[in-house]
């Protein structure tokens, strides 16, 4: 792939019926760009978990997919409650999901750890009461 590609998506909080739609679109775009399928799968997991976090906890978010010949970058910027203790949230098994969410199989406490595991670089910043910003980078080669 020689060209760069950028696309911006919007995700609405609490919209469970469309949850996963943006990640499916991102996956399709990366496949069409001819990106290696193992890399596409890693990005799909990271973007799905990010998208679900927005659906479960935030009001809305902007997701920017940026692909150049070297890296795939996904920035997820939400307007929401923010995360008071990021270190705690990064621990596998920790979740603030409601009982209703858990009944649906969410809230395994694996979301952020799954994102980190599938990224080559991962940064998370959060302002309580304002929102959270994730930056996910996956190297193409």
């Amino acid at each position: 792939m020689n060209k760069s590609f950028t696309q911006t998506f919007t995700v609405s909080g609490n919209n469970f019926s469309d949850a996963g739609k943006i990640s499916t679109e991102i996956k399709m775009i990366l496949k069409q760009l001819g990106i290696n399928s193992d890399i596409v799968r890693r990005v799909a997991i990271a973007s799905y978990e990010s998208e679900m976090n927005v659906v479960m906890y935030a009001c809305k978010a902007k997701i920017v997919l940026d692909v150049d010949p070297e890296v795939i970058k996904i920035i997820v910027e939400d307007e929401g409650p923010g995360i008071p203790d990021i270190e705690l949230t990064m621990k596998e098994g920790y979740s603030t999901a409601t009982p209703e969410m858990r009944e649906l199989g969410f809230g395994a406490g694996m979301g952020l750890p799954n994102i980190k595991k599938n990224s080559d670089e991962f940064t998370i910043k959060s302002d309580v009461g304002k929102g959270t910003r994730l930056e996910i980078i996956v190297y193409i080669n």
Binding site: F16, A19, M52, L104, G105, A108, M110, G111, N114
Partner: peptide, 27 residues
């Protein structure tokens, strides 16, 4: 648990679950 299946299932697997809601399709 959807995140568990996202993390550990592999391409071409059959997925056995008791979850019946819409979000299983995206996974």
């Amino acid at each position: 648990l959807l995140s568990d299946v996202m993390a550990n299932s592999k391409q071409g697997n059959v997925w056995i679950t008791i979850q019946v809601h819409l979000n299983i399709v995206a996974v």
